[in-house]
């Protein structure tokens, strides 16, 4: 989306929803606004119903768990035989405020004006709780169920908050960063008992490629090439 159009949308959103200017930012040709959980429903109603915004389509809902944001896998301060992480930075783990662990990210689209808006809400409460937006956009219904299933975010007022993707009787919220990748239980058929039994998982966790954070500025070498020489 062109920059002027984005700025116009940003001003429009800020004025209609009574948001401070600092709550919106334009990055990589995308507009993000941050909203407090308490004013979420009110803001969302305006975003959808205001005729000049007309964000009538609900594209996506994603939850981000910021528990391990900016933390790399191996952390040694200096070169050693055991750790290999020379030049691996510790990232921003120390500066982060983990009271805002979860963020719910909504992506909205206006078919009339052809613009997109990202709405981001940080949740402070434990267990994470947020009012539902499914009465505003019916499409949000399943997306919220998915967020509840995978991250355990409760949507108050949701008509039917059941698990959706995980198995019947699943325990836990698998997409949280503290849920192990290999899971917690495994199932197999027991020929003696003649039924399927679940047992604690026997897979050893292993990392094939460690997560590293490097702040290199190498990207200048690949500037967009021959974009317009058609």
């Amino acid at each position: 989306m062109p920059q002027e159009k984005l700025k116009r949308l940003a001003n429009l959103v800020n004025s209609r929803c009574n948001l401070p200017d600092a709550s919106s930012r334009i990055e990589r040709e995308e507009l993000t606004i941050e909203v407090e959980p308490t004013s979420l429903v009110e803001t969302m109603n305006i975003l959808k119903d205001d005729q000049d915004l007309a964000l009538t389509q609900f594209s996506d809902l994603a939850v981000v768990d910021y528990l391990k944001y900016g933390v790399s896998d191996w952390e040694t301060k200096k070169t050693s035989r055991a750790g290999f992480s020379r030049a691996v930075s510790r990232g921003k783990a120390d500066q982060l405020d983990f009271s805002k662990r979860f963020a719910v990210v909504y992506h909205l689209l206006s078919i009339r004006y052809n613009w997109r808006l990202r709405v981001k809400v940080y949740i402070q409460s434990e267990p994470p709780k947020l009012p539902t937006v499914s009465p505003i956009w019916p499409a949000a219904n399943w997306f919220e169920r998915e967020a509840f299933d995978l991250f355990g975010v409760m949507f108050e007022g949701h008509p039917d908050l059941r698990r959706i993707l995980t198995d019947y009787g699943f325990v836990g919220h698998p997409f949280r960063k503290d849920f192990p990748l290999e899971g917690k239980v495994e199932v197999r058929y027991d020929p003696d008992q003649k039924r399927v039994v679940s047992e604690p998982v026997s897979i050893e966790p292993r990392t094939l490629v460690p997560k590293v954070i490097r702040e290199e500025d190498w990207l200048h070498s690949s500037k967009p090439k021959d974009k317009d020489d058609a």
């Binding site: 790399s72 990232g91 992506h107 997560k211 954070i213």
Partner: peptide, 12 residues
Amino acid sequence: DGANKPYRLKVR
């Protein structure tokens, strides 16, 4: 988050 892996990937 600046790493060699995505921090979060959501498929719509």
